[in-house]
Design a protein around this nucleic acid. Structure first.
Lengths: 335, 335
DNA sequence: AGGTACCACGAAATCGATTTCGTGTCAAGG
DNA sequence: CCTTGACACGAAATCGATTTCGTGGTACCT
């Protein structure tokens, strides 16, 4: 069995109250007594029982990271967000708990909220259903949505500037002379998809290029969705000379599909991604992408969440982060 | 505030004991009473307080997944293990908590053990220091080491058959006619490194090829360690015609280094990895590798751990899993 | 009738730490 | 000499759920 406060108090002939206060830095403990308690605790290997402490303090010092994908679909994007969040949480004295369940997720969300397992949640739900937001708000659970805009009046979120990023990428591709540009969409991601598609269409319009619906294909959360999408585009009677993939993971698959047909990249077909996955740097050829400041966004999301835990009545915070076009060899061979 | 047992008991004019028993399926509750309790709990939105329940039951129904890398170094290998573990844990009624802290990890380990935050730990520590094992054993914390052999007499582990996998890979490369084969080592991974290196040397010896120390380079946990290692090998006066990278992540970097020099793969230099990363499949060209059954190993590790939680005195379990050579275009261009 | 056996429920202890409140001691100040 | 107040400590309530034990009541058997 573990060492408890009672054990220490008995060993020293003190009361549990005094021992607890000594360990927690209360002022009404004699310095000499404090020293005795501290060294005895050290000697006996005491560590406070988490459950007991949580129960009494009515808080857990934990925040939940809720992903909307199965664990096996954790990717570069999520890892960066997790890393940023973990860093901020650690600095601010909180622990991060990862929740990503295989089956039903709304059930998990409910449990988290109501069993008070965590003090607040960070939703890395790129397609958060509005019902979940409503639920959280009505339960009074502090929450921040990561990665997309949300309309709910009291919800906070942190999101990238998808429109600006997509415009920058389109300007780059158009500047290289491409006029038929494929677009891997992801309608399930809602506002993210809408923003990027809007930027795509606006850029075409501004360049005087008619919009061709055949160049827009839909991808899903499947291991080879990008591979299939690329095949479809390449099978068109008039295939594109450049392709935009909704994220770099899809772009890597697109490269493979092109390579299998013996197409050279970027001479025969240019490929660009989005989000700035680390593995895009080590792709062959290295991937042009739009870099999101995911690490910083993750940190910021956590600090917003913690403010909200301390002060539940604060007004919501919405932040849009600037993004950066990174040009590499998959579109511009000589860079 | 949340709904508690007391709230329900007062609403129904019952005692907390009866309410608790009704919810927990005890037999000494009248069917009619049970129904009343259940529907009232439903109506009031009751969910048991985790801290209180953990405190009383002296268990958390959680197991800790302890990684020895910062969160940002989560990769395909770890994701597969996590996915397998999560699946098994969920099926067996346990939650998985991910621990990977940025700074000091032995401190985290200690806290986990002693504060009873989890019922047991799965150590995905590819280079578990023996002191950590000793610590766990002396604290009596149920634990299973994932990914490498461990010598400690009472420690359980689950590991791949590195030697056999490496031999199979070498036989493949030697069969293609390669006689100068580079080897990316990773001495920090101890037994894993030793086993693979031994297989490398044994295979060479059996083929009558002298061992050349210049072909063995060391890699570390750095974002571009494989890239640098490949450059070193390619700079040799007599560069290798094939290269083995310690894992597929390094192999991807090696491909990039080769591609930057205009070398064709596998015609000018063949590249093979290990561990069977998913992204190796979408590499350009797709990567030859040794596939580890990580998902199954993760599941098995969890089930071993849970057995040990239920019955702490069981003898240790050590399991070595068979691996499979997967040949792709990075070594055999026409496959 | 008396005893046994269940049945359905409540009282109360318990898990381990935190925190409020109270108490005795001693020194300083009027 | 008495009061005031700081000081150092202990008693006890508390957080919310679980679980043991006990108690009336009813049915059944001899």
């Amino acid at each position: 069995m573990s060492v408890t406060l009672t054990d220490i108090s008995q060993a020293l002939g003190l009361s549990v109250s005094t021992v607890s206060k000594a360990l927690n830095g209360y002022r009404d403990v004699a310095p000499e007594t404090r020293d005795r308690v501290l060294s005895m605790a050290q000697a006996m290997g005491y560590h406070p029982n988490t459950a007991a402490r949580n129960l009494r303090r009515q808080r857990t010092d934990k925040i939940g990271l809720l992903l909307n994908t199965p664990i096996m679909d954790i990717n570069d994007y999520l890892v960066e967000v997790m890393a940023g969040s973990a860093l901020a949480a650690e600095q601010l004295g909180y622990n991060l708990v990862l929740y990503t369940n295989a089956t039903d997720r709304s059930e998990a969300l409910l449990r988290l909220c109501r069993t008070r397992e965590v003090d607040g949640v960070l939703l890395i739900w790129t397609h958060v259903p509005d019902t979940a937001i409503d639920l959280l708000q009505s339960e009074g659970v502090p929450a921040v949505v990561f990665g997309r805009r949300v309309d709910h009046p009291t919800a906070s979120y942190v999101a990238p500037d998808n429109y600006a990023g997509m415009r920058a990428l389109m300007d780059h591709l158009l500047g290289l002379g491409h006029r038929r540009i494929g677009f891997f969409g992801r309608p399930a991601l809602r506002t993210t998809h809408e923003d990027r598609l809007a930027a795509y269409q606006d850029a075409l319009a501004q360049a005087g290029i008619p919009f061709d619906p055949d160049l827009v294909v839909t991808t899903r959360l499947e291991p080879n969705s990008g591979y299939l999408a690329m095949q479809r585009l390449l099978d068109l009677p008039e295939p594109p000379s450049a392709v935009f993939a909704f994220h770099d993971g899809l772009a890597l698959q697109a490269i493979r599909a092109a390579a299998e047909r013996g197409l050279r990249i970027p001479q025969d077909v240019a490929v660009a991604g989005f989000d700035g996955w680390r593995s895009g740097l080590f792709a062959n050829p290295p991937m042009t992408t739009v870099q999101l400041p995911l690490r910083e966004m993750g940190q910021r999301a956590v600090s917003i969440l913690l403010e909200r835990i301390e002060h539940p009545d604060l007004p919501p915070v919405r932040e849009i982060f600037p993004v950066e076009l990174v040009v590499r060899a998959s579109t511009a061979g000589d860079v």
